[in-house]
Amino acid sequence: MRRGVGAARFAREKERDTRFEAVASQLTATRVAQAREHFDSFRLKLQEFALKHRDRINKDPVFRQKFCEMCAAIGVDPLISSRGFWSRLLGVGNFYSELGVQVLTICMATRPQNGGILELSECCHRVRRLRGNLAPPIDEGDIERAIERVAVLGHGGITVMKRRGKTTILSLPDELNPDQTIVLDLAHEKGHVSCRQLNEAFAWTKERSMAVLMVFLREGLVWVDTQVTAEEGGEALYWFPSLALSRLEEDDE
């Protein structure tokens, strides 16, 4: 005999569903309440931490790095909003926004000289000079992080290129092709390249070398020195201003 067919069964099922729903919503409510409690207690912890170490985060690049590593490890991004707790309590959001503006400004200001290739160390040096002595100190990691932040506005404007332990900030309208990239690598060694150097390093023909160098020259990335003495090779040298400058500074140190 079949049972529970018809209106009675529907009524019963409906009642069961509403009961399930009630239990489910109660469960969620408890979970949310608990979450809020946890959030509140965490906010207290963060406040405590801010009270004690806020200055250190803003003044000590190493500690700031550790702090950022910690945030990255747990998947928290304190810089996403300048109004979140992290920024309000610790001031990190503002710090990186400010640095981002400064780095972008420097890239733009130095473009007439370097065509958009800026060595990270030189950028760091210039940012420090721009900020003055009273501002909290920054290091190269901070600059990289600031540039990473700006990347959400599109990757075309400014990118960080890391090759062979050297970090370069590129603010070029176009991406570099592979040939151009390895020429830039070579240029890190001396600050300049020539057709002969390219031939020795990559066994390129003069035509291939000149094709790359002419693009660089045209885009204003290199300065050409035609007055090269015979003992230096007697061949035109193509200088990357920012790389040459940072090499000079390294030698001074």
Binding site: L79, I80, S81, S82, R83, G93, N94, Y96, S97, E98, G100, V101, L104, T105, R149, V150, A151, V152, L153, G154, G157, I158
Partner: peptide, 25 residues
């Protein structure tokens, strides 16, 4: 206006309470 440039301009104009790139976007 490129958004990069807008980020610089707007934050310079604000002076304090800068906004993050995410917020700008």
């Amino acid at each position: 206006l490129l958004l990069h440039d807008l980020f610089c301009l707007f934050n310079r104009w604000k002076g304090t309470e800068l906004i993050s790139p995410e917020e700008l976007l």
